[in-house]
Design a binder for these strands. Structure first.
Lengths: 230, 230
DNA sequence: CGGAATCCTGGGAAGTTCCTGAGAGGCTGC
DNA sequence: GCAGCCTCTCAGGAACTTCCCAGGATTCCG
C-alpha cells in the first residue's frame, strides 16, 4: 500500500479545524493539526506534511510569517492559504510561491478539496489522479473548468459547476440532500435548503438537455449521477 | 478475533437509550451509554468509542456543544447526531460536512444501523464489510441503493427498500411481524400493523416477479427470506 | 367438510416531496 | 452608476408514497 499523503491543517478556530480534518481524513489523507504559528512550525518538522493548509489569521503571527520562517523547507512544501474575504488580493499574490494557492473563507469543502488535489497533482504527488473526470459521455476538466457532453461544450455558472463536480466525483452513489448542501455550498450557508432543487433543475436543463438523463432523483433521499435504466 | 467496535450512545430518554443499545449490541457492537453531556464527555475519554451517537437535545447542553468540547479527540471521532424532526434545517446543516451524519427522530432502527455502518465503512473501520448484500441472485448495494434480481434492475420506494434490506441482512431467519415493524418503521409508528402485509405484497410483486419466490410467509409468525424448498 | 383465523391484494385518500418558472437582490466589470 | 449575470427565495402544481380499507383467497383445525 502506498504511503498516505500527509496534510497539516493550521487554523485557530476549533470548529473549522475539526470539520476540515474529518473531511480530509475521509478523502484518504493523513491529517495533522495546529492552532498557532508556533505549533505549525513544529508540526512541519515533526509531521513532515506533503502539503499545508494555513490560515492567514493566527493568534501569534500571520500565516505569511509562518511560511517565511520555514526557511529551506519552504521550497519543498506547497501551501494552500485560507484567507478572509476582504484580504486584498495583491497581498496574497505577492507572498504565494509558484506551487501555492489560496481559498477565501467561507469556502465549500468541495472547492477546498479540489484545490488541494490540483496542487498535489501539479507537484506530482497525487500520482494516478487526473484533472479529468469522465462519466459516460459527460466530461469535466478541473484545470480548464471545461465541461462537455458528447463533445458539445456546456457553459456552467460557478455553483452549477461545483455541484456537477461533486456528483461526478461520486458517480452512481446516492448523495443525500445534506451531503450535497454541506459539500457544495459554503459552510456558513444558512438559507433555504430548496436552492438545491433549483440548481439540480438548472443542471438538468444544461447537462441532460442533449442526451439521456444522468441526474436522477432518489425520492426522500437525494440525488444520484448514473446511467438511465432502460 | 478482531476487537469489537465500540459505540457510545448518548440520549436522555431511557427508552430510546435501551432500544438503541439492544439493537446495536445485537449487531455485534460494544455499547456504552450516557444520558447527559457531561457523562458523554467522560464516556468518550474512558470508553474510547470508535463512533458516537449523540442526541442534540440533552438536559445540560446541546449535542453540538458536546462535540465542540471534545477538542482534539473530536477530529478522530465520527458522530451520528440524533435530531428532532422540527430542528430547523440550518441548525442541522453542516453536520455532514466532515463526514458525520445525522438521523432525524423518529427513525427506524434499520436506518440508524445502516447509517452507522456506512460511516464506519468510510472511515475504514468496518473492515471486511462491503456495501453490497447478496442473497442468491438478489443483490443490493447500499451506496447506490441499487437492487437487482438476476441482473435485472428493480425500482423500489424508500420503505420497500428498507424492508428488503432488513430481510437481506437476516437471510433465512424468520422475522416476526413485530421485529419487522420495529426495525423498518419508526419507533413511534402507531398505525395499523397491516401495512406490513401491504409492503410485503409490493415487494413480492417487484422482487419475486421474475424468478422463484424468495419471500416466504410463516403463518402466525412473520416472514423469511430464503430459497424455495423445491 | 365447515368455520375461524390469517393473509393477500387492488383501490383509493391523504399527505409529502419535488419540479420549475418568475423575480428580488447582490455583486462585478466596465 | 449602470448593465448583466448569478444566487437565492417563493409558490403553485405535478408526481409520488404511504397508509387504510375491504373483499376475497388461503390455511388451519376440529
Amino acid at each position: 500500500m502506498p504511503e498516505k499523503l500527509r496534510i497539516l491543517v493550521v487554523d485557530d478556530e476549533p470548529n473549522i479545524l475539526d470539520v476540515i480534518s474529518m473531511a480530509l481524513r475521509f478523502q484518504g489523507f493523513e491529517v495533522g493539526t495546529a492552532a498557532t504559528g508556533q505549533e505549525a512550525l513544529a508540526g512541519v518538522r515533526s509531521f513532515k506534511p506533503h502539503l499545508m493548509l494555513l490560515d492567514i489569521m493566527l493568534p501569534d503571527m500571520e500565516g505569511f510569517e509562518v511560511a517565511q520562517r520555514l526557511g529551506a523547507e519552504r521550497a519543498e512544501l506547497p501551501i494552500v492559504f485560507l484567507t478572509a474575504r476582504d484580504t486584498t488580493e495583491d497581498k496574497v499574490r505577492g507572498l504565494t510561491m509558484g506551487g501555492d494557492d489560496y481559498v477565501t473563507k467561507p469556502f465549500s469543502l468541495e472547492e477546498l478539496v479540489a484545490r488541494i488535489r490540483a496542487i498535489l497533482r501539479r507537484v506530482g504527488l497525487d500520482g494516478n489522479e487526473s484533472s479529468r473526470i469522465v462519466f459516460d459521455d459527460l466530461e469535466l476538466d478541473d484545470d480548464t473548468r471545461e465541461v462537455t457532453r458528447a463533445g458539445r461544450h456546456i457553459e456552467l455558472t460557478d455553483t452549477e459547476y461545483r455541484l456537477l463536480r461533486y456528483l461526478m466525483r461520486n458517480p452512481r452513489r446516492v448523495l443525500t440532500r445534506a451531503q450535497l448542501l454541506d459539500h457544495v455550498w459554503s459552510y456558513d450557508f444558512g438559507g433555504d435548503a430548496r436552492v438545491l432543487e433549483t440548481y439540480i433543475s438548472y443542471l438538468r436543463k444544461k447537462v441532460d438537455g442533449g442526451g439521456p438523463p444522468l441526474i436522477h432523483t432518489v425520492r426522500g433521499v437525494g440525488y444520484s449521477l448514473r446511467l438511465p435504466r432502460s
